[in-house]
């Protein structure tokens, strides 16, 4: 079942088309991640989905509701964390949680949530005195008080230190384990690769790829890199024996790098080096990551548009 359906969504700001004809759907119980550089249109997409912004063309449905006309009904059912939200000056954790508790008909007990997120001893602390990671946990807790089926997270981990970021990842994994659907945007490839079942990559308002992590990496069609170090001259040996399977050899002093699509090259290479009695060390294989795929896909898009912006 699809929890979110977006078809041919278009949102324009005066002359700029922030979101240009994008379509995707999010399955119940999955984590969907929207990736893209700053200004790609991720937040605009999020705000169209949750009815904070009116769009110009297309169709959006979330929990079978129209986000514009049924928005108050929708807000009882979803939990959101918006980008760069902060809170009232001098408001305490407890007060903020109580405020969100009274908004909903069947709220979750916020004490239990604070406990679950390890913030129970911060109940009486000023929200503005919490660390960045703690504040983002509060943002999730506030989103969860509604006991929502769907959680929308817009750049939840931006600006957090690596440790807090990893803690947030576990929180998000837990949301999925509880059967909730998560729709998130992020800058961090590692995060998307670790968490998301489906990834959409946006650039300049367009959705340039949508697939599982593996699917995106396959689509980018990037070589595996095998590298090692040796004192011997191996260029011709490798070239003669493995030429059919490899795309490129790079040799820089003692460092050798082989680019290929086939992982079998590693086995062949080791056998070859042993047969030829060549001493080697630090052999390593690097498969393309989501980040490699992302950079290639986003970079390609820039080239074809012909007016790259940084």
């Amino acid at each position: 079942m699809n929890i979110i359906v977006v078809e041919n969504l278009v949102k324009k700001y005066k002359s700029l088309t922030a979101v240009n004809q994008i379509s995707f759907s999010v399955k119940a119980g999955s984590i969907f991640g929207l990736l893209g550089p700053n200004g790609a249109g991720k937040t605009t997409t999020v705000e169209c989905i949750i009815g904070l912004m009116k769009f110009d063309e297309g169709f959006v449905e979330i929990l079978s509701l129209n986000p514009i006309t049924d928005n108050k009904k929708l807000y009882k059912e979803i939990g959101v964390q918006l980008q760069e939200t902060s809170y009232q000056d001098k408001i305490k954790v407890k007060e903020l949680c109580e405020l969100f508790t009274i908004m909903y008909e069947k709220p979750l007990d916020y004490h239990r949530l604070l406990e679950q997120f390890g913030l129970i001893d911060k109940t009486n602390t000023n929200v503005n005195q919490l660390s960045g990671g703690e504040r983002q946990k509060i943002a999730i807790i506030l989103a969860l008080i509604a006991n929502p089926q769907v959680i929308i997270l817009d750049e939840l981990t931006t600006g957090l230190d690596p440790k807090s970021r990893r803690e947030m990842w576990e929180c998000i994994k837990n949301l999925k384990r509880e059967g909730r659907t998560v729709f998130m945007t992020t800058h961090y490839m590692e995060e998307a690769a670790y968490l998301c079942d489906q990834i959409g990559i946006m650039n300049k308002g367009k959705l340039i790829a949508i697939d599982s992590v593996e699917g995106i990496i396959d689509k980018a069609d990037i070589d595996i890199t095998i590298s090692f170090e040796t004192e011997d001259d191996v260029f011709h040996i490798i070239k003669d024996e493995l030429n059919k399977k490899i795309n490129k050899i790079e040799i820089n002093n003692t460092k050798v790098k082989i680019y290929t699509k086939s992982e079998d090259v590693l086995t062949d290479l080791i056998i070859l080096l042993r047969d030829k009695k060549i001493n080697y060390r630090k052999i390593d294989i690097k498969r393309p990551t989501l980040e490699d795929a992302y950079l290639k896909l986003v970079g390609k898009e820039k080239e074809t548009e012909g007016n790259a912006t940084v």
């Binding site: 904070l52 807000y75 979803i78 959101v80 918006l82 939200t85 902060s86 009232q88 908004m103």
Partner: peptide, 17 residues
């Protein structure tokens, strides 16, 4: 003005109140 700048009002727009 502060509530608006800090997106507090926006956060409440995405809630039942």
């Amino acid at each position: 003005a502060q509530y608006r700048e800090r997106k507090i009002l926006k956060r409440f727009m995405a809630s039942p109140i």
